Simulated scan of single mutants.
Amino acid sequence: METDTILLKEKLDFHQYQLAIKALSDIGIEVEPLYDPYVVQEEDRISIAKSREDFKNGRYKDNEQVLKEVKQKYESILG
C-alpha cells in the first residue's frame, strides 16, 4: 500500500477537517483515519495488562480510600 502525507501549517477544527475530507473524497482520494476510537491500541493493551497485574497483586486503592486521601490533602483548601 502506498501512502502520502499532507503536512498542514495549522490545526484544523472539526468543521474544516470534515470539509477537507469531503473535498479529497470528491476527487477520489480515500483518507485513512490516524486514530479509531473503537480500536484498542497496543499502548492501551499494555496499560490494561499492567492494571490487571497490579490488581491481582493487591496494588490498588478503592474509591473510599482515594476520597479520604484527597480530603486529607486538600482539607485546608476546602475548609
Rank of each mutant, 00 (worst) to 15 (best):
T5N: 04
T5F: 02
I6E: 05
I6Q: 05
I6C: 04
L7R: 14
L7E: 15
K9G: 09
K9W: 04
K9L: 07
E10I: 00
K11N: 11
K11Y: 11
K11D: 12
K11C: 08
K11L: 09
L12G: 01
L12D: 03
L12N: 02
L12F: 06
D13C: 09
D13N: 08
D13L: 08
F14I: 01
F14K: 13
F14M: 06
F14P: 01
H15C: 09
H15A: 13
H15P: 04
H15W: 10
Q16M: 05
Y17N: 09
Y17K: 07
Y17F: 13
Q18G: 08
L19D: 12
L19M: 11
L19N: 11
A20C: 11
A20H: 01
A20Y: 02
A20S: 10
I21Q: 11
K22Y: 14
K22Q: 12
A23H: 08
A23R: 12
A23I: 04
A23S: 12
L24C: 03
L24A: 01
L24D: 00
S25Q: 01
S25Y: 07
S25N: 03
D26W: 02
D26N: 10
D26S: 06
I27A: 04
I27C: 10
I27N: 03
I27E: 02
I27G: 05
G28N: 03
G28V: 00
G28D: 03
G28F: 03
G28W: 03
I29R: 00
I29K: 01
I29Y: 11
I29E: 05
I29S: 06
I29Q: 04
E30Y: 06
E30T: 07
E30H: 11
V31I: 06
E32I: 09
E32Y: 15
E32P: 00
P33G: 05
P33C: 08
P33S: 08
P33D: 10
L34D: 06
Y35I: 01
D36V: 15
D36C: 15
D36G: 14
D36S: 15
D36R: 15
P37F: 00
P37T: 03
Y38L: 14
V39C: 07
V40M: 13
V40Q: 14
Q41L: 12
Q41V: 07
Q41E: 15
E42A: 13
E42F: 15
E42L: 14
E43S: 15
E43Q: 15
